[in-house]
């Protein structure tokens, strides 16, 4: 019975992804991607990664959707179909592009599924990722930093440089947007 609860959101994710790809209305596809992220947040919560779930819900479902809608407000709502206007050889070329794109997706998916075969079981204490510094973080971070949530301890204390780098990346993104898109009023 419990398996159904785990499998249901994953099936829903596949359904969302397929609908978003096949939909012609770009605004609808954007909203469906937001729903996709929200279900992804549920999946993260089921995997006990609450911090990741929080980020997914706020960034993936919230901000990304809003920014896509903002970008759509400057373009058109429907998908552009060049194949309708093209004739003859050009038209054939568009369908070749579509089919080859599909094959690339299928090949990538096959490679990824092949890659997961060798993955250790979920939560395996002897998995390589859990043997290196993870144990130290779990056992010592409370004592060393005084912070109960060791995700925060890792982000803010042990990996403070990385977080500074990330913040700088976000800052740079904001600056680039201002430089590229802001219309300077010349008086």
């Amino acid at each position: 019975m419990m398996e159904v609860i785990y499998i249901l959101p994953l099936l829903f994710l596949v359904a969302c992804a397929l609908t978003a790809v096949l939909m012609k209305d770009l605004l609808g596809a954007t909203i469906i991607l937001g729903a996709y992220s929200l279900i992804m947040a549920v999946v993260w919560t089921m995997l006990n990664a609450v911090d990741v779930a929080f980020t997914e819900a706020s960034v993936g479902a919230g901000i990304t959707t809003v920014l896509m809608v903002a970008a759509l407000s400057r373009t058109v709502r429907g998908e552009y179909e060049p194949a309708h206007e093209a004739r003859g050889w050009k038209r054939k070329r568009f369908s070749i592009t579509k089919v080859s794109g599909f094959f690339v997706v299928v090949l990538t998916a096959a490679a990824m599924i092949y890659g997961t075969m060798d993955m250790p079981d979920f939560g395996d204490p002897n998995a390589p990722a859990n043997l290196h510094v993870a144990r130290r973080y779990i056992e010592e971070s409370r004592h060393e930093t005084g912070v109960p949530n060791f995700v925060t301890a890792v982000l803010a204390s042990y990996r403070g440089y990385d977080t500074l780098g990330e913040t700088t990346v976000i800052f740079t993104a904001g600056m680039s947007v201002i430089l590229l898109l802001r219309r300077i009023r010349r008086e």
């Binding site: 920014l67 903002a70 407000s73 400057r74 912070v147 803010a156 913040t167 800052f171 904001g174 947007v177």
Partner: peptide, 24 residues
């Protein structure tokens, strides 16, 4: 940790609104 969390929060909040203000 509080200090840097507040710093991260200020920058992220400002960048998110800036991107929206400039793209919409």
């Amino acid at each position: 940790i509080y200090g840097i969390e507040i710093g991260v929060g200020i920058t992220v909040a400002a960048v998110m609104m800036t991107i929206f203000f400039e793209t919409a």
